[in-house]
Design a protein around this nucleic acid. Structure first.
Lengths: 242, 242
DNA sequence: AAATAAATTATTTTCGAAATTTTATCCAAA
DNA sequence: TTTGGATAAAATTTCGAAAATAATTTATTT
């Protein structure tokens, strides 16, 4: 086994892209932060051009903002963005769910049940602070994906995935400050049951409530982090501490 | 005035991105075509890294496909992709239209009427083959954008724009082979009237019909261009002729 | 002191050579 | 003839130096 690095088939740029996307989504790279090339070069151990390649993709995904001739910053967060994101997610998730219920087969149902079980067990094992776990986050993402994977629309799934990632960044911000946690997660179970009962109306309403309540919690616990009235009007961007 | 080049504020990479996106959308760079760096370098007069930057963005937009360690190809076209694209566009355009009708003000209505007028007059002037004109294409895009611009959702507008661009590539493919043209364009006028009458149900149905009929025409006139049963199983990609 | 300009420093952007990887060609063995 | 493997050629990917641009500091003038 090699000591450390292993892009394995993919290019170095693709590897950096994945790592950087993960770092932005889980707020290791903080919203609004200036992305200095020297720092990034140390952090990811690649050259300028390779970095720019990854950054360019992230710009297209809406996770990074390019300021022509003045570098890149991590996409800022705001209440407006969160609200808009929430509305669009409701539209897309509901459509995906409706289609999946129409088109999914038995194997699909089994996948959902499996994904829920994995998430649920880990949740029990981790106790109240499950939300802070990287592993639970992964399984939570897998569960939500399993619900819609049978919709058969590559475009919808692609759009959904990108929105889900951006929403996760907000969830991540609030999870640090959250004090109250639903002990037993009944929401996910209800969604799953409605989906397997092939009830698109009920499933749609439940997923909408799930998304909107999550947003409400984000605003409640992390709202104070958004749009801090700019102290330095000149350079709004936060510095990266190298 | 400088002789030729003028990125004007934006970076060289951003300039190449715009030119390349336009070339893919209007099929100067043909679907499935292998994108060789030497050819591209001549074509756009920039270096490897700058090219890769632009290509990376186009990958994220779904106009280019990256084949790890084996370069890039223009995103292929297919009936399946067109059908999926059509369904998702119907969903998104209808939502945008509904929201715009709810939220738009008088100035917005005026914008629509202006955009329609510009498109309509050019159409009259150009006669039957208006569809082949670059300028008409631009005004047509502007008109459709004006219909939804008041929806107030940056995310929906962004998604809509990217889908519209990809759909345009299909329209462009069929326009070369099309023999019958609707002499007077009544469809756009009806949509505009329903929107200004603030009738979301009617406007939604009309925009859906507009999109689906366009797709039907694409299949009719350009369907034979899709998914030519691969003659060379090894290298499916078409070569760029430098 | 405040404002403007010039010079300096810091940072980003671009380039093409060098390294890596894939693809094509050739040759020997079955 | 076909198969497998080495060798050569072609293409992509990565790198860091050099050029271009922006930000900061210093100097000069009002």
């Amino acid at each position: 086994m090699p000591e450390k690095l292993k892009p394995a088939g993919e290019t170095r740029a693709a590897d950096v892209l994945h790592r950087m996307r993960a770092d932005i989504i889980n707020c290791t790279l903080k919203p609004g932060m200036k992305l200095k090339f020297e720092s990034l070069r140390e952090m990811y151990e690649v050259s300028f051009s390779t970095l720019r390649e990854a950054l360019s993709r992230l710009v297209a995904e809406g996770l990074v903002v390019a300021e022509d001739q003045r570098g890149f910053i991590v996409a800022p967060v705001s209440i407006d963005d969160l609200n808009d994101l929430t509305d669009v997610r409701v539209l897309i998730e509901r459509e995906c769910l409706t289609l999946a219920i129409k088109r999914g087969d038995d194997a699909w149902e089994a996948t959902i049940i499996g994904a829920f079980h994995r998430m649920d067990r880990l949740q029990e094992r981790l106790g109240l602070k499950y939300y802070l776990s990287e592993e639970w986050t992964k399984l939570h993402g897998d569960f939500h994906f399993s619900l819609v994977v049978a919709c058969q629309s590559p475009n919808l799934l692609e759009i959904r995935q990108k929105l889900f990632e951006r929403a996760h960044r907000y969830r991540r911000m609030s999870s640090q400050f959250r004090t109250k946690w639903r002990a037993k997660d009944v929401e996910h179970k209800m969604i799953m049951e409605a989906v397997i009962a092939r009830d698109p109306t009920k499933a749609g309403k439940l997923i909408e409530r799930h998304i909107r309540e999550t947003t409400a919690n984000v605003v409640k616990y992390a709202g104070h982090l958004f749009e801090a009235p700019d102290e330095e009007p000149r350079s709004r961007a936060v510095r990266v501490s190298a």
